[in-house]
Amino acid sequence: MKILDELLNRYIDNELSTGELVQFQKQLESDENLLQKLKALQYVEQSAKRIEIYSAPNGITEKIMAKISLQLSERYKKNHFFRFIVFVFTVLILSISGFMVSSLVNSNFGLNIKNSFFTKLSSFSEKEIHLIEKFLANPNTLLIISSITLLLLLSLYFIIESNLFANQKSKSF
């Protein structure tokens, strides 16, 4: 049965070799049931091309274009919101860093040093490890470092998340 089905399909698709075609035609002449099945298959072939096509609703093009415009404007707003968040984090990080450096310079060298900031910084680098240890021993300093780390991690999370989302969206098709 399956062999006959296969033969019928291959006949319809013009895939039979000359030898197979001659043999199949002989079979058709002697088998009325097979002939009727072939006719039924030919009927499917002809009629399937003429079946009803469902047309898209009226005004669908306008709806789609409006949806695209809306999506684009929302995406633009989202971008601005993300940029604003990044800007706030950057300002925060810079402010805390600036405060930390200035407080360090003041606490370690006092206000009597009247050299430029860079001179203070180079002097600071000359103070060996014990100075850094002293610096790290201060609980306030640790608090500031923790805050900066947290802010950096949060910023990093936002950046990675937004990149991953964009990549997923572009690869989804």
Binding site: D5, N9, A40, Y43, Q46, A48
Partner: peptide, 21 residues
Amino acid sequence: LHRSRNILRDLIFKHNYQKEL
């Protein structure tokens, strides 16, 4: 495609629609 055609063919054959061909 072959399976889909075969099931449609069997139904057409069952109802003798091929005679309209």
